[in-house]
Computed example of a mutant assay.
Amino acid sequence: MEKILVTGSNGQLGSELKVLSENYSQFEWVFADRNQVSLDNLADLENQLELINPNVVINCAAYTAVDKAESEEEFADIINHLAVGVLADWSHENNAKLIHISTDYVFDGTSSFALNEDSPTKPINVYGATKLLGEIFCLKNNPNAVIIRTSWVYSSFGNNFVKTMSRLMQERDSLNVVNDQIGSPTYAADLAKAIVDIITHSDWKSGIYNFSNEGEISWYEFALAIKEIGDYNCEVSGIPSSAYPTPAKRPAYSLLDKSKIKDSYNVIVPNYKESLKKMMSL
């Protein structure tokens, strides 16, 4: 029986994989939090992998506090970059498959059309820079790895935009939401299913892939969809990013082209609104 290790098991994606794993009992699943597999302890990481000895590694663990990363660059780099190199090296040496999760923040946001896997990367914040270095190190140490870039992840688990908006719309009469950052959200349950589709596919094709839900929207339009589905009375207004300064700059445009993952692995990519309705009805 193949053993699948999921790092970052308490995060949104790890939690969704845990739910989905119940339908895939042909695998032995190991869900590891930061105590069992600690990406911030490079000296011990290889030993932890040896103990578990998986056939497949799904790396959902990451330093994702985008603004905090600006002042914690070294720590973010260990988790998002250096540790990924260790995972890639170990999986390559032990003939294990590796799926590593990356981000749309590897782009600078100046594009005006959907970005494919070959679009030039140029991060504009520390988080994006460390994630890009992680991608490079991953494929250098294990050319057989699969990297999935995703964006605007939400789920019924953890803290995210959908849950925050739902709460605030019930607490407040009005909200301002940024309307000049364009992309597409990702329901973590859909991404989890895409990952399992890749693992169970007969033909493993390494490389970088994009995955997010279908649709091209701003955070403001995303908030309007949440308001509509939740039937909230809160007044939602769009504001420019300049009115809401943050320590880390965000890409203004990071819509991902999903053609490659659909063609290579027959992955189904639902529309963002269908998935949002599904999550909000849970």
Score class of each variant (00 low, 15 high):
residue 159 N to H: 11
residue 216 E to K: 15
residue 57 V to I: 15
residue 176 N to I: 00
residue 220 Y to M: 06
residue 219 W to L: 14
residue 155 S to E: 02
residue 14 G to V: 04
residue 272 Y to T: 04
residue 226 I to C: 15
residue 114 A to L: 06
residue 269 V to P: 08
residue 25 S to E: 10
residue 74 E to R: 02
residue 41 N to E: 14
residue 137 F to L: 15
residue 197 D to M: 09
residue 23 N to C: 07
residue 71 S to M: 04
residue 152 W to F: 14
residue 21 S to A: 14
residue 31 F to C: 03
residue 110 T to P: 03
residue 236 V to Y: 11
residue 76 A to V: 07
residue 79 I to Y: 02
residue 282 L to N: 07
residue 98 L to K: 00
residue 171 E to M: 13
residue 118 D to S: 12
residue 103 T to G: 05
residue 224 L to A: 11
residue 249 K to Q: 09
residue 176 N to G: 13
residue 245 P to F: 06
residue 175 L to W: 09
residue 85 G to M: 07
residue 146 V to M: 12
residue 263 D to S: 14
residue 257 D to N: 15
residue 150 T to W: 05
residue 90 W to Y: 14
residue 74 E to H: 03
residue 81 H to K: 07
residue 278 K to W: 05
residue 165 M to T: 01
residue 227 K to R: 15
residue 145 A to E: 08
residue 76 A to D: 09
residue 220 Y to Q: 05
residue 141 N to G: 13
residue 73 E to Y: 05
residue 9 S to W: 03
residue 115 L to Y: 06
residue 109 G to C: 06
residue 36 Q to R: 12
residue 178 V to A: 12
residue 6 V to R: 00
residue 21 S to H: 06
residue 253 Y to A: 04
residue 176 N to R: 10
residue 35 N to H: 05
residue 160 N to I: 00
residue 127 Y to E: 02
